[in-house]
Amino acid sequence: DDLAYVIYTSGSTGKPKGVMITHGNLANYLLALDHELQITREDLYLHTASIAFSSSRRQLMLPLSQGATVVIATSEQRKDPLALFAMIKQRDVTIMDAVPSFWRNCTAVLANLDGETRSRLLDNNLRLMLSASEPLLSAIPRTWAAEFRHPARHIHMFGQTETAGIVALYRIPSDIGGARAVPLGRPIANTEIFILDEAQRPCPLGIAGELYIGGAGVGRGYLNSAAQTSAKFVAHPFSETPGARLYRTGDWARLNADGQIEFVGRRDQQVKLRGFRVELGEIEAALAGHPAIRECAVIARNDTNGEKRLIAYFATEAANCRITWFRRCS
Rank of each mutant, 00 (worst) to 15 (best):
257 A>I: 04
25 N>Y: 07
157 M>Q: 15
126 L>D: 02
294 R>E: 14
64 L>I: 05
225 S>E: 14
317 E>S: 06
201 R>C: 05
9 T>Q: 01
4 A>S: 10
114 D>R: 06
210 E>V: 00
175 D>R: 08
150 H>A: 09
196 L>M: 12
261 I>L: 13
27 A>N: 08
4 A>T: 00
84 L>V: 01
114 D>N: 15
248 R>N: 09
14 G>N: 12
292 A>P: 00
42 E>F: 12
297 A>E: 13
21 I>K: 03
248 R>K: 14
228 Q>H: 13
215 G>K: 03
6 V>K: 05
254 R>I: 01
305 N>P: 00
2 D>F: 05
112 N>P: 01
176 I>S: 06
49 A>E: 04
42 E>P: 00
130 L>D: 09
307 E>K: 10
308 K>P: 02
206 G>A: 11
178 G>F: 10
313 Y>W: 12
37 L>G: 03
98 A>F: 02
95 I>Y: 06
143 T>W: 14
220 R>F: 13
47 H>R: 12
21 I>H: 01
97 D>Q: 05
260 Q>H: 14
206 G>K: 09
286 A>W: 07
9 T>G: 03
294 R>W: 04
156 H>W: 09
111 A>C: 08
265 G>A: 12
126 L>M: 09
139 A>F: 08
174 S>C: 03
288 A>T: 05
170 Y>S: 09
325 W>P: 00
85 F>M: 04
193 I>P: 02
49 A>F: 15
42 E>T: 02
23 H>T: 09
233 F>P: 01
312 A>Q: 11
25 N>G: 04
15 K>R: 14
70 V>T: 10
232 K>M: 14
155 I>V: 15
157 M>R: 15
186 R>P: 00
202 P>K: 13
178 G>Q: 08
95 I>D: 08
13 T>D: 04
80 D>G: 06
233 F>G: 03
37 L>E: 06
284 E>K: 06
209 G>I: 01
197 D>L: 07
120 R>E: 15
178 G>W: 10
266 R>M: 11
20 M>V: 02
179 A>H: 11
237 P>W: 13
145 A>G: 00
154 H>V: 06
211 L>W: 09
286 A>V: 00
302 N>C: 11
301 R>Q: 13
319 A>Q: 12
3 L>Y: 05
202 P>W: 12
47 H>K: 10
265 G>F: 06
273 L>M: 13
84 L>Y: 04
40 T>N: 07
23 H>G: 02
281 G>K: 11
248 R>W: 12
279 E>C: 09
158 F>E: 08
97 D>W: 06
49 A>M: 10
219 G>A: 06
187 P>N: 13
227 A>H: 10
300 A>R: 08
